[in-house]
Design a protein around this nucleic acid. Sequence first.
DNA 1: CAGGTGGTCACCACTTTTCCCCACTTTTAT
DNA 2: ATAAAAGTGGGGAAAAGTGGTGACCACCTG
Lengths: 143, 143
Amino acid sequence: MFIGQYNHTIDEKGRMSIPAKYRRDLQQGVVVTRGLDHCLFVYPKSEWEVMAEKLSRLPVSQKKSRAFARLMLAGAMDADLDGQGRVMLPEYLRQYASVKKHVIVAGLYNRLEIWDEDAWREYRTKTELESDDIAESMNDLDI
Amino acid sequence: MFIGQYNHTIDEKGRMSIPAKYRRDLQQGVVVTRGLDHCLFVYPKSEWEVMAEKLSRLPVSQKKSRAFARLMLAGAMDADLDGQGRVMLPEYLRQYASVKKHVIVAGLYNRLEIWDEDAWREYRTKTELESDDIAESMNDLDI
DNA sequence: CAGGTGGTCACCACTTTTCCCCACTTTTAT
DNA sequence: ATAAAAGTGGGGAAAAGTGGTGACCACCTG
């Protein structure tokens, strides 16, 4: 279970170190994909495979299914941690999330999220203002 | 399982190198064919058999099925990787996908797709606008 | 039939990227 | 305060990507 948030940096080679607390659960490798709200999602391989299997069953004939599969599958990239517990983030993913050097790594139970530091701050202040609204909506989910 | 996306180039002889990660599953040879949305589909030979079988079962009486079968079956071409892991893309396929020099190779679980770089970028920005719709679709899949 | 032409294929060579390891700095824990 | 762990940066070896040359074959042409 991943929780918490960390400030990390991406070096000139596009590598980012995974918070030490998370590493044990990610030894088998990770899959990084384009996430929602322009951040990156990081799944342990085992979690990912369940999702990929679902995605593979979408009908090729449907336009929307193809678009969805292309976003998620073609957007995904599997990686292993190096000796220092880092992963390489390919150029196209860094661009998608517009991450430069300073990023936020957040734990969200079964996945991590990688945010550009500025985008994160912006998102946080925006949602804080709407937090009452958001809380109301959560009613529907038994929370 | 093919995932991820890569920038590759087609040389003057029409050859394109397959991303190294994919090669092991394509050693037995590939089938390249006209795909949907004006890109090319690349299947491992074994996957192609499954696909071709499905196509052969489409009702001959339906105009649209006939068109689809002709697109995929008549457009197909089988090829082997050369010593450097490349395939030769025949002229008529390059023309169909209007690929010139710079292409995107994307992994979509059981097939690859080859896109002209510009066409890909255009497609991405277009579908990005529909990302709300896409998020909805995730709901249907329990993701 | 000999020679020329065009195309394909296998192999070689150069460049770029990726991966692996070592080293230094900063933070955390004892 | 000291030791240990985590985060960060960089150098060098290896692999991948790309472009090119030359052998080989079929076909056309004089």
